[in-house]
Design a binder for these strands. Structure first.
Lengths: 359, 359
DNA sequence: TAAATTTGTGTGTCCGCACACGCAAATATT
DNA sequence: AATATTTGCGTGTGCGGACACACAAATTTA
């Protein structure tokens, strides 16, 4: 019974529906696509049969028959400024290759992540192209909103990744759960530390004010100790560092290290853990364990060195890949798309690094 | 230049080749499929043009046009005996849904993992069905070889997962890198332990003799300490336990615990970490940290309890999923398939568990 | 040398769907 | 009442490729 219905459903064609409804294929087609020009009673009859027979259109034939091309646009920072962005780019390109057969073509718009004007300029350019769908990492909140509004008016679906902005309901958000990753980092620290000690949270190279995700990471990190009733064992410090000021960077660290002989762990909330590793190496400090983010080359160097214990990774390649796929699921395959998709928080260490490097 | 060639290649059709070669589409078709009946010089001319134009067949049209159906078979243990197998099963079914459009249909053959006869029986049944491709977890070495031979003779590609047998070169192997996962477990133990202590390796419910992967896990685990020159800090014990003998199970553990007051970590090489957790809970022993494998329900219970610190997971759902995909890449899409594909070794803890549960 | 095969090639139909077009009947406009 | 428009429906072609078939020319066989 059950078996038959599911097996059969794969083979129901428009023609079958037409026969059963005593109309022509064209009429069924008009019903399916809501093109009008169908008598109300006939329409309902057809609709009922479609439902009864569990009709599922053959996507291959659909795509082949409609010669429609889909132009998608992707907006994200130039990897020249931050190697992190190589990964989403690769994911986007992989998705493009996967979906080429379906008439998908993607144009990339990259901008300087330190320059809002560059962002706006690229977003404007992108909008002019009037793509069928947009994938973007909206790192500038204020600057982004007008574009959201415009896209919404033009009915262009857009998917966000890496940075979330909930206004103007995007089709979907793909990315990191910053709070949770803070919790996770704390768990690792806790596991690695039985005796009381100091722990430093280091925010590097981003203005906290403009980076909500750093705040959330810190909250998650701190809350872990509270939730597990071990806050008395951990003296939590924090610091904001800028790489641009080399001397300030070192001075601040020196001060912290000198004043906290019991410092055992540093949690770097950005991808710049390698800067701390470099510092520790230069100062010949051992016994401080490092946890950071992102599998970029300088981090990997220190991970393989055992100077960095763990890197937390949230599949940046997958973010690009799934972002494009979500757009296509919506546009081409008319599938439901989850409003939010968090990719797994991977704990990466020297011993399992390999598996995360390619795919 | 480069740009043009890649953009254009998407649109080369058989017809275009035919025109350029001054032959009909049928002839080009015969060349492409090596159906013979083409003059040698014409064949070479066509082949050259195909290459020059960078022709890539439109897969959608291909699948649509050839009404060929692909019957695949999957052979793996019944999840009734070990919940682990629910995951590969789910992956296989997901792949089936993905590939249904391409005419793929999969039949599952499940067996009792404790009974070689059951394995052989199902494998025989499967072979009778003469599928176009086979995905299997060949947990019985000796019993498997004759089937490999038979399939090889019949030119039926087969993909292995979870358990590797290199003889008779399968199309591909997908699964775990046991040695590496042993290393990883040791890394975690090492990170969590600054002072000298005892560590127990527990093999539960499998005869070591028949389970090469357990041996490899143990090797990896031990070698970590050697490679990092910390073997003197860790007193490594080992034990083989059988759940079938409840009293023996407890007696052996009691003995070890009593004789090793400094025991701080237990590494369970199978999915039965929960049994140890249960034991520790009953004996009200705290201060011993547990690392195990696989996200099965009883393990998750103790993971959420903080009785198990970490579970190592090698995406069992993905194993089923990718296994089927590899078969189809080979059979349908004529793509190169990697001979070996290790899925990421995930370190799972209470704090990132959610991400690994569905996808 | 005539008949039977074997090459080599082109043509046509189908796969399931999208979409344009054609056309009669019903309805609206003047 | 004659004409114009709209509604409701069917037909036909194309998407790119697979495959069956037809058929002339080249070869083989008798």
């Amino acid at each position: 019974m059950k078996k038959n219905s599911s097996v059969k459903s794969a083979n129901v064609r428009i023609k079958d529906i037409a026969v059963k409804a005593n109309v022509s294929a064209g009429t069924v087609d008009r019903v399916i696509h809501n093109r009008g020009r169908v008598a109300e009673d006939v329409k309902e009859r057809v609709l009922k049969i479609i439902k009864d027979l569990n009709y599922e259109p053959n996507l291959l034939a659909r795509v082949l028959g409609s010669k429609k091309k889909y132009y998608l646009a992707a907006l994200f920072p130039d990897h020249q400024y931050d190697a992190f962005w190589l990964a989403p780019k690769a994911g986007i390109e992989k998705a493009e290759a996967d979906l080429k057969q379906y008439g998908v073509q993607i144009e990339q718009f990259v901008f300087n992540p330190h320059d809002p004007d560059s962002y706006v300029k690229q977003a404007t350019e992108l909008t002019k192209r009037n793509p069928d769908g947009i994938l973007l990492s909206p790192i500038y909140y204020k600057e982004t909103l007008p574009f959201f509004e415009q896209w919404k008016d033009n009915n262009i679906p857009f998917v966000l990744f890496n940075t979330q902005i909930a206004d103007y309901d995007p089709l979907s958000y793909i990315g990191q759960d910053s709070y949770q990753s803070g919790l996770l980092a704390a768990k690792i620290v806790h596991f690695g530390q039985q005796t009381p000690c100091s722990v430093l949270i280091a925010h590097i190279d981003e203005q906290i004010s403009n980076a909500q995700h750093l705040v959330k990471k810190e909250q998650g990190f701190r809350n872990y100790f509270l939730q597990n009733n071990v806050e008395h064992q951990f003296n939590i410090l924090r610091v904001e560092l800028q790489r641009s000021s080399q001397s300030g960077f070192i001075r601040k660290l020196d001060e912290i290290v000198d004043n906290n002989p019991n410092l055992k762990h540093i949690y770097v909330t950005t991808s710049q853990a390698f800067e701390i590793a470099k510092y520790l190496e230069q100062r010949k400090i051992t016994g401080i364990k490092l946890i950071g983010y992102d599998l970029i080359a300088p981090n990997l160097h220190y991970l393989n060195n055992d100077k960095i214990s763990f890197l937390i990774n949230q599949n940046p390649k997958g973010q690009g890949y799934w972002g494009i796929h979500h757009l296509c699921d919506h546009l081409i395959f008319k599938k439901e798309v989850p409003i939010i998709k968090y990719l797994p928080l991977d704990i990466v260490t020297k011993e399992n690094l390999n598996y995360f490097l390619d795919e």
